[in-house]
């Protein structure tokens, strides 16, 4: 690890003290606390929809953090994709599975103590490790590293092939999601037509999707 740090070349003597933070650091810390708090609430709350909404807060805060780290384009993509689509998808999922609105006493499984132990252990281990390794590392934030222009340049000069492969992956995921979420009886084709149903059989029972 020391060789990696030496190669990075941005190690500077401990001139930058943690006791005299810069303005960016203060904002980062504040937003970080917000993100962490939102995340914790999101994984502990008993209200399922609230959890999704707290997730929005956490992800939005992360977008701010990206901005603070000068990754402009990534931050906007984060807002677009996560806040715009993922969370909406999650909310739709909650609705479609008829998640209870309001406090749900069964939001957590019986695995909670184990989860707490594993989470705490991993946090302790990783924090120790990370603090020990990067205590004296300094990020030089001068100069824009993530503007849209710059991102477009490297993305379409160096990363074209992975980018295209990723588009294929997305397509496959799309097709897979459709195949998975289609009902087994072939969708609407297999269902009797409404008119016929009304004339033939007065009962509304067959209109129910063929579940179970």
């Amino acid at each position: 690890m020391s060789t990696l740090l030496a190669a990075a070349g941005s190690l500077e003597p401990a001139a930058r003290s943690y006791l005299s933070p810069t303005g960016q650091e203060i904002v980062f810390l504040l937003v970080g606390v917000l993100v962490l708090g939102a995340a914790v609430v999101s994984v502990t709350t008993r209200q399922l929809v609230h959890a999704a909404l707290w997730l929005v807060v956490a992800l939005g805060g992360l977008a701010v953090e990206f901005l603070l780290l000068t990754a402009e384009f990534v931050a906007w993509v984060q807002v677009l994709v996560y806040l715009g689509s993922v969370v909406v998808l999650v909310l739709f999922g909650l609705m479609l599975t008829r998640a209870p609105i309001g406090r749900s006493p069964e939001a957590d499984s019986g695995n909670r103590p184990a989860a707490l132990a594993v989470g705490a252990a991993s946090a302790a281990t990783l924090v120790t490790l990370v603090v020990d390794a990067f205590r004296s590392s300094w990020i030089d934030l001068s100069g824009a590293a993530g503007t849209t222009r710059l991102t477009g340049e490297y993305l379409f000069s160096h990363w074209v092939l992975p980018f295209e492969a990723l588009s294929v992956l997305l397509l496959a995921a799309l097709v897979g999601a459709i195949v998975l979420s289609r009902s087994k009886d072939g969708g609407t084709d297999a269902r009797p037509r409404a008119g016929k149903l009304r004339t033939g059989r007065p009962s509304a029972a067959p209109t129910k999707p063929k579940e179970r």
Partner: peptide, 15 residues
């Protein structure tokens, strides 16, 4: 810390 919170959520959530 975010990662650990995620781990906890994955392991503890029922839904």
């Amino acid at each position: 810390l975010l990662f650990s919170v995620g781990v906890y959520g994955v392991l503890a959530r029922r839904n």
